[in-house]
Every structure is written in structure tokens, then in C-alpha cells.
């Protein structure tokens, strides 16, 4: 694969509630290249967030493989895996910090240990400026609008300059203008910096403007038409026939 950044091959995942298996993902395969902007839509509980977690290495698939830049995540040591995820994959969540951090320090957090406060803050300010939020550097999360939170969350996700950004429902609760702002920002990040963005969306309008729309349906990605079933079924259902 020449340009492949992310590859999921036949990934399946179940959760167990006692003896009951809850199948969340079934045989999911997809590829992403650098600079690609992909939206994943599905109903609530369709497995969108699980897909992101598996991609981010926060969950392990039961079967199937996840490759990042050609490397099979399952074959990596724990420390190498953690480093890869920390350095090359950014994650944008809707929830912000619970503490009283300024947005500058919140965005600087992922860099703090490695770079020290001064350099981390400098890069955090650049990231905030990149998303048009430098004026909110001194503000607290609680004081921001939903749109400002979405943009600040993206700054937090890209401050380490990852190669892949995972974004979980960034435009939930946003109006049309704010949603377009967020998508335009993500689009510009992919265009200018070669960042690949995998984004789950709460509704299809939020997927407009991406390079590719994928649909999760019953834990599977909606794909090519299947072999059509015969017009009639050999099984007969006498009781229903009578009640119909």
C-alpha cells in the first residue's frame, strides 16, 4: 500500500454483558491515506465510538488487524504502541477539562512533560491561533460556547501535530454556521498539513464537505449490494398466513 496511513482489515468487536454477547463491529475494513477527510455516520449505538477507540488503540479488536503506517498494532510492544498513539494520533473529544485550566494550559497539556511549560504554551498558542481561538487562550472551558469548545478541542487534538486526527461528533449541538466553520477548519488542516481526519458525525449534514462518507449499519460498514435473495422463500409460515 503506497499511501496508506490507516488500514482496518476485517475488524470485529463484541462486548459481553454476562453471557450475552453484544456485537458492536463486524468485519469492518477501511483504508485511509494522508490528507483524507472521512466521516462515519451511524445511529446511536452503531459502533462509531468503538471504531474510533480501536483506531486510537484504546480498544483491541477481537479479530482482524489494525495497521498504522504499515505497522500492525497487535505486533507492537506496549510502550511502542503507546508512543505511536501519543505522537501520531490526536483525539478530539467533546468533553473538556473539569479543572479550572485556562484554554492555553489545556491545549498545552499533551506537550507539558516532553517540552516544558514555556515551549508547550508557545505551541499551544500557535494551535489556538490556527483554529482562530487565540483570543480565548485565557478563558475557562465553562465560559466557551459549543462552537468555541469544538474549535478548542481541535486545537488540543492537533497540538502534537499528529498524522491522524480522530474526532468524535465535533458538530453535535452546533448551528449551521458553526458546523461549517468546524468542517472548514478540519478541511484546511487536511489540505495544508496532510493530516488525515476520521470523524464521527451525529447527522449526515455534518458529513457534507468530507472526502468520503461511510455508514455503519448493524456494526457493519454499508458496502456494495449483496447477492439478491430469491423472490420467494421455501419456508412457509402457516400461522402468520392465517393472521395476515
Amino acid at each position: 500500500m503506497q499511501d496508506g496511513l490507516l488500514s482496518l482489515a476485517s475488524v470485529s468487536k463484541s462486548y459481553w454483558r454476562g453471557a450475552h454477547e453484544l456485537r458492536v463491529l463486524t468485519d469492518v475494513s477501511m483504508e485511509m491515506s494522508p490528507g483524507e477527510f472521512v466521516a462515519v455516520w451511524g445511529k446511536r449505538g452503531a459502533g462509531k465510538t468503538t471504531l474510533l477507540k480501536i483506531t486510537a488503540g484504546l480498544e483491541t479488536p477481537d479479530t482482524g488487524t489494525v495497521r498504522f503506517a504499515g505497522q500492525d498494532l497487535a505486533g507492537m510492544s506496549e510502550s511502542a504502541h503507546a508512543r505511536l498513539m501519543r505522537e501520531q494520533v490526536g483525539w478530539v473529544r467533546r468533553a473538556g477539562p473539569r479543572s479550572d485550566l485556562s484554554m492555553l494550559d489545556y491545549v498545552a497539556l499533551p506537550l507539558l512533560v516532553e517540552h516544558g511549560q514555556r515551549r508547550a504554551r508557545s505551541r499551544a498558542y500557535d494551535a489556538l491561533a490556527r483554529v482562530g481561538m487565540s483570543e480565548c487562550a485565557g478563558q475557562r472551558w465553562d465560559s466557551l460556547s459549543d462552537g468555541e469548545r469544538a474549535l478548542t478541542g481541535i486545537a488540543h487534538g492537533v497540538v502534537r501535530r499528529p498524522r491522524l486526527l480522530l474526532v468524535d461528533d465535533p458538530t453535535a449541538n452546533l448551528g449551521v454556521r458553526e458546523r461549517e466553520d468546524v468542517n472548514e477548519l478540519l478541511r484546511s488542516l487536511t489540505g495544508e498539513e496532510g493530516l488525515a481526519v476520521l470523524m464521527t458525525v451525529p447527522g449526515m449534514p455534518a458529513a457534507m464537505g468530507t472526502d468520503e462518507i461511510k455508514v455503519l449499519s448493524g456494526g457493519r460498514l454499508l458496502a456494495q449490494p449483496r447477492e439478491p435473495a430469491p423472490q420467494t422463500n421455501v419456508i412457509e409460515f402457516p400461522s402468520w398466513e392465517r393472521s395476515a
Binding site: 449526515m204 458529513a207 462518507i213 455508514v215 449499519s217 454499508l222 456494495q224 449490494p225 449483496r226 439478491p228 435473495a229 430469491p230 423472490q231 420467494t232 422463500n233 419456508i235 412457509e236 409460515f237 402468520w240 398466513e241 395476515a244
Partner: peptide, 24 residues
Amino acid sequence: RPRNVPRLIDMVYGQELACLGRLR
């Protein structure tokens, strides 16, 4: 009718794909 169900499942799936095509 019950005998129509498998065919209907495929029809529904086909319409899902058509919707996705229109969205694209």
C-alpha cells in the same frame, strides 16, 4: 407475507445504498 421477507430485506438494503449514493 412471510415469504417476501428475505426479498424485502434486500430491497431495504438496496435503498440504503441508494440513499448513501444520493448523499455522496
